[in-house]
Amino acid sequence: MNPGRILVVEDNPKNLKLVRDVLQFSGYEVIEATSGEDGVRLAASEEPDLILMDLQLPGIDGAEALRRIRSGERTREVPVVAVTAFAMDHDRERAFASGFTGYVEKPISIRRLPQQIKDFLRLGGAT
């Protein structure tokens, strides 16, 4: 059984590969995007169950990508989780203020990530 389709938006190829491999290992289907624009496009065309969005991206940043995803007809409801290395508290607050469903802090924990994804998916289903 497929537990879900996850769109991962991450510009660093090694980190993207890591997250992809770990999620695939846990049985998720993974769609990869390396820029905010790609992420917005793929969110609309692939209709993922959840989006993992890095905040610092080339071109449009995570917050702007989120705004576009939220304004898209078919992607309005999808849970979007920020992957943040912003350790400054106010940056994190800003991320939440812009409307992310939640956040995962970098460096991501390989052991905890699958469970965190599961929790967020459940939340997305509940709302």
């Binding site: 660093n12 090694k14 980190n15 890591l18 997250v19 770990v22 290395a85 970098k106 460096p107 991501i108 390989i110």
Partner: peptide, 8 residues
Amino acid sequence: TPLNAVLG
């Protein structure tokens, strides 16, 4: 960011 990959 790179550390993320090393640890991961």
